[in-house]
Design a protein around this nucleic acid. Sequence first.
RNA 1: GGCCCCAUCGUCUAGUGGUUUAGGACACCGCCCUUUCACGGCGGCGACACGGGUUCGAAUCCCGUUGGGGUCACCA
Length: 558
Amino acid sequence: MDNTTALPAITRFAPSPTGHLHVGGARTALFCWAFAKGRGGRFLLRIEDTDQKRSSEDAARGILEDLAWLGVHWDEGPGHGKLGGDPRGVGPFHQADRVDVYNAALAELIERGRAYPAFETAEELEAKRKAAQDANQTYRYDRAALDIPEEERLSRMLAGEPHVVRFLAPDHDVVVADSVLGEVRFAAGELDDFVIRKADGFPTYHFAVVVDDEAMGVTHVLRGQEHLQNTPRHVALQQALGYRTPVFAHLPLIFNPDNSKMSKRDKDKAVRAFCIEHKLTAPAWGGIDTATFEAWLRDKRSQLPTDDLRALAEAIGFVPPEIDVEDFRRSGYLPHVLCNYLALLGWNPGEKNDDGTNVERFTMEYLADKFDLPRIGKSASKFDREKLMAFNADEIQNRMTDAAFAEAWRAWLERYDRATLSTLGERLPIAAAAARQRTRILREAAAVVRFALVGEVKFDEKAVEKVLLKNGGEGLAVLRDLAPLIETVEHFEAGAIEAAIQHWCEHKGLGMGKAAQPLRVAVTGGTVSPGLGQTLELLGKASVLARLERCLNVFVVH
RNA sequence: GGCCCCAUCGUCUAGUGGUUUAGGACACCGCCCUUUCACGGCGGCGACACGGGUUCGAAUCCCGUUGGGGUCACCA
């Protein structure tokens, strides 16, 4: 029954380069990668750019970059650093460069009477479609072109009259054998004669996919369940062309918490809602003009260019939900953690840890080793940012070393926050050690050590009152005594600093809190910071003493 | 609307006819630890959508109902 493990497996991920890679695509790619990798097969990448208007080379590069960052590395396909290449000679991997391959297959289909040219314009078809819709009927192409005598059809086509080519749908049921869903039957007549070559000479998705998968030897097609309706078309095409039918596995969809399908539009939706809620009427930053902004605000379905949307969100101080892989990277999720979480959406290894808990944290290697089709779920799953965040936090706080965290943070800062990187300079490792236990995503780390990034402390009134001034300036008195002690700490490092203060407290018969909190307020302005030792070490002795002195000057009533 | 898919705690899930008073994780609540915050430890709350079958026995198999979702382009 389970023919899904047959060797060798060749899988592919075939995005259309119309924007950034979003998490749904990333999960599909991850599964394709894991499946091939786990059984010594090949994972290939193909760019589906047959839509001239929407495709861009920029978007294609962006997707390669996202995939590479995730660690979803392709064996064959477009070059990207060490990735890609064409060892078997099955390329090129951009469909726009393969038009002659499609035309050859198409000629064969026409020859055998399984495809035919049709001359209706898009407008004519749209009118027919609308008429059917208004009559509450399902529209299917009416095969009007078949009324034209075959010879005439072909000669008009050869003469260069504008036309599309349609596939003559089979008159029998088509059964899709899916590894996740089982057998799904589509009745004869459900398929209409869909277009396989557009008027511009490019193949449609259905045709290009089928031809390429055969040419590239693809054995397993893993893709989102939204493709299930397309599959009978592909199977019918494969049968008509005499191709093998690969193993199909349709992956469950990924939803938003509100049960809608996760899509790129969600970011616009969220930002728009924020703007409306705060009654913003102008763009608030110079990137777009007011008219564009208002039009976008009014049309609930419209989208701003990615960069403009991000700039707008930043300007109004709103963080839109992460949707694209790039969004998660920017927020500071670690790539293998994102993969780990994504893998759990619709799949799980079904293994227990020694303590009886489910195995749900794992490495890319483990995933490649364990991933298989029978354990893919059937029902859609909601994307839970809380859980993803918890995974990322656990990785940073409990599994990473200070050094590894410092490196990850440095890389992130280099890409997204150079200002903080240069302010930190040499202190980055110390800051990282102080921030790690309080950081869930890289973006939060700087805030944890903010006190060390500013020149002058801004005092929080409540903190000052409660910790320094209360009980007749009890806190300030402690500070006065503590300053000389700090002065004497030789190696100004967290452990030594804490030991000295602890010793002092014991000597004075005070609880540690009586010393730690005043110090904290004096050097950070507030009551919350990393451990006292780390806080002071990060500041450095000179800065700590200067801040202490200033604090005493500001608050001691002479 | 046609066609198709799905249905276990709020969420992700384990469970493949008896080992189940349904297990884990995230979230939430309480307690403990504690120099703040965070981490951590312990405990708690909490689900088989409904109705019929099949069977000695059903979360697990079948049918129906309800609910959710996908898809209906010269986009992919």
